[in-house]
Structure formats: C-alpha cells, structure tokens
Design a protein around this nucleic acid. Structure first.
Lengths: 204, 204
DNA sequence: GTCTATATAATGATAGAC
DNA sequence: GTCTATCATTATATAGAC
C-alpha cells in the first residue's frame, strides 16, 4: 500500500475537510473562498481541485459525511427496552454526539440553503431517518400509556430543536459539565413527554 | 409634509428592506449581492446607497429592527399574575409573533456571524433582554414551588430553542392551525417546567 | 433620487509546467 | 500532487450627469 513520493492525499484530504468545516462554520459557505480554505492548509487554491470537483461538492460531502456518521453512531448506541429507556438513550446519545461537533451542527443546519436541490434532497432524506427514529420511540410510549403527547410528529421536532440548541451556547470550559447537561436535559425531555407525571402519579 | 417630485424614499426604503429580508433569508447574506436586491425593487445597485451606508449597515438595520419590534410587542403583550399565567402568555406570544416572521427569524439566527463585532454585540444585548424576560418568569415560578426546574438558565434557552424551532417547519397551509400549534407547544412547555406534574399531584 | 459608468478587488475554476 | 499564471465573472462602492 506504499504511495508514491509526494503523494499525501490520504493526509491532505482530511486536512482540507477539517479546514473547510471550521471556516464555513465560522463565516458561512458563501463567505468562504477556495483561496481561504487552501491558505488554511498551506496550499494554493488550484490544488484543492484534486480533492473536490467543485465548491458545492465539498459542502455536500461535509454535510453528508456528518449525517452518515450520526446515523451510524446512533445505530450502535441504540438500546432495546421500554419506550422510556429508549428515549433516555436517544437523549443522552444526541447530546454526547453533538456536543463535540458544534462546527458540524452549525454547518448542517445553516448551509442547507446553499445546497443544490438534488444535494438538499439527499441530506433531508438522511435527517428524516434520524427524526423517524425518535418518533418511533414516542409513538411506542404513547401507545403503552407511558407518554402523554398531543402530537408525536411535533413533539419529535420540538425535542430535537431543544436538544440541538445546546450547541448554540455550550462551551467546553463553561459552567456545566457534559454529565450535568445530560441530566438537566433528560429531565426536561422526560417532563415534556409527560413521563414524569405518570411516574409521580404511579408512585403514590 | 409634502415631498418633492420624484422623491419616494418613504416608500422605496421599506421596499428595499423587504426585498433584502427575503433574499437574505433565502440565500444568506454573503450570497446576496446589492445588485440582486436592487433588481428585486427595479433599481440599479448604486441607488441603494441612498438607503443604506453599506451592505453591513443594511444587515444590522434589519436585525436590530426585528429585535426591537419583538421587545416592543412583548412589552405590550406581557400580563400580570402568577408564574404559570405569565409563562402561558409568553409561550403564546412567542409563537404568534414569530410564526408570520419566518424570514426574520431565519435571518436573525443565521446571520449573526456576518455582523461586525460591534453590531453583533448590539443584537446580542437585545436578545438577552428577551431571554431574561423569560428566565424571570421561570425563577418566580420556581421560588413559588409551581415549577420544578433543574436550572432556570438552561431551561430558558431550551424553551426558546424549542419554540423558535417551529419556524423551521411551519407552513401557513400545513396540517396544523396556529391555534392548534399554540395548544401543543403550551402543553410541552407546561410539562417541561414541571407545572403539569404539580397540577396533577395537587388535584388528588 | 436614480441613472450610467467605472474603479478596484476578489471570486471559482482551469491550463500547463514540474 | 502542487505550483504559477490566468480567464472570465462578479462583487462593493463611488462619481457625476440629469
């Protein structure tokens, strides 16, 4: 598997991607030039085209990879059990996965409008898989009488918006540890779906 | 107050602002050119500079106006009473104010990074006033034993993220009416702060 | 207040040498 | 695989005529 002298595509590729994620998350896709990305990895702009067909492909590749990693990690972290157990696993997974990826979260939710229609549809499809994963849990809990949810579709979107919003304020050196954040949000989620009320009532 | 012939700044100004809001919400600030904004109001790019000093000032003006209108409307809609009553008023106000303003919501949350540091600080100051308004309600309810909240600061951010997320999927011709959306989200908010549990327990 | 014309700079992408 | 050089396009902003 030895490579030719001067060939660094297996190292340079990831460096280009990482620099692009940082710059786009910071300034926005349209505001970042290929020259800026190249400068961040000590290259000339022309050389970037060895790693991407064009600027649009680079953006799509970054977003698709992020979503695929999300779904893959989620599949590994999923648990079996009752709806409450699975909801807790989902909540904690979502937080743990997204907290160290604030750049990717920002990028994935802010740059959808800069994708071509075809690429946009591809990302939306992946995101729907993730949403459906959560909604299936809510529907199960609802049917089992464990949750009290007015509309599982809306509750799904509301919970994901609430949890993903953490990325807007979280700082690694902030007031709260990741464990503490997990606890606070798990309490909010539990309450929101009406699980805490059932638990309190049942305990009497 | 008659104006000179050919003077339309009192009409053209709002038209420029409205076109800018639409275009920036759709494509992003950096991706929209002054020429595009001018074309949307049937003008040449140079004439826009009668209405804004530069592109950055235009963006800041749009975001500042949106935040000021939010705070003004909120001041008018605020009610007195116990924490639960005020939380319900806040929740319903937030939804009713933001639902018809999806462009402004998008713009205000997506284009913060395209503001100069000074302008960014100005917008953040206004946004903090709004957040503090909600947190004061949560703190009051917590002290009165009406709410069960682990961290009022985090709950504030979580609720606002949840409510503002409506703008990401709401369509006027969608499945749910505004009234129905208000009911669903008010139930979620009530649950999230632990008010429903207290109510259920107290009722027994 | 709006136009045309333009100064000045930057952009995405490509060609060809090495 | 990376470089230099460049093309063709587009950008913000300004000047001056009307």
């Amino acid at each position: 598997m030895a490579r030719k002298t001067g060939s660094h595509s297996d190292i340079t590729g990831p460096r280009v991607r990482d620099a692009a994620i940082s710059l786009i998350a910071e300034k926005g896709f349209a505001a970042v030039s290929m020259r800026q990305i190249a400068a961040a990895v000590d290259m000339q702009a022309g050389a970037l085209y060895n790693y991407t067909a064009d600027k649009q492909s680079l953006l799509f590749d970054l977003m698709r990879t992020h979503m695929e990693e999300l779904l893959e990690a989620r599949a590994e972290a999923a648990v079996t059990g009752d709806a409450l157990t699975r909801l807790e696993a989902f909540t904690r997974f979502h937080i743990r996965f997204h907290l160290p990826r604030s750049r990717e979260v920002f990028l994935s939710y802010m740059e959808l409008r800069n994708l071509t229609p075809e690429n946009f549809a591809g990302i939306e499809r992946l995101r729907k898989v993730y949403e459906d994963d959560l909604e299936a849990i809510l529907i199960d809990g609802q049917r089992a009488g464990v949750f009290k949810i007015a509309d599982t579709k809306i509750a799904t979107l509301a919970l994901i918006a609430m949890l993903t919003g953490i990325s807007n304020w979280y700082r690694p050196d902030g007031r709260l540890s990741i464990d503490r954040i997990e606890e606070i949000y798990w309490a909010l989620v539990q309450n929101a779906v009406g699980a805490a009320e059932i638990a309190a009532t049942a305990a009497e």
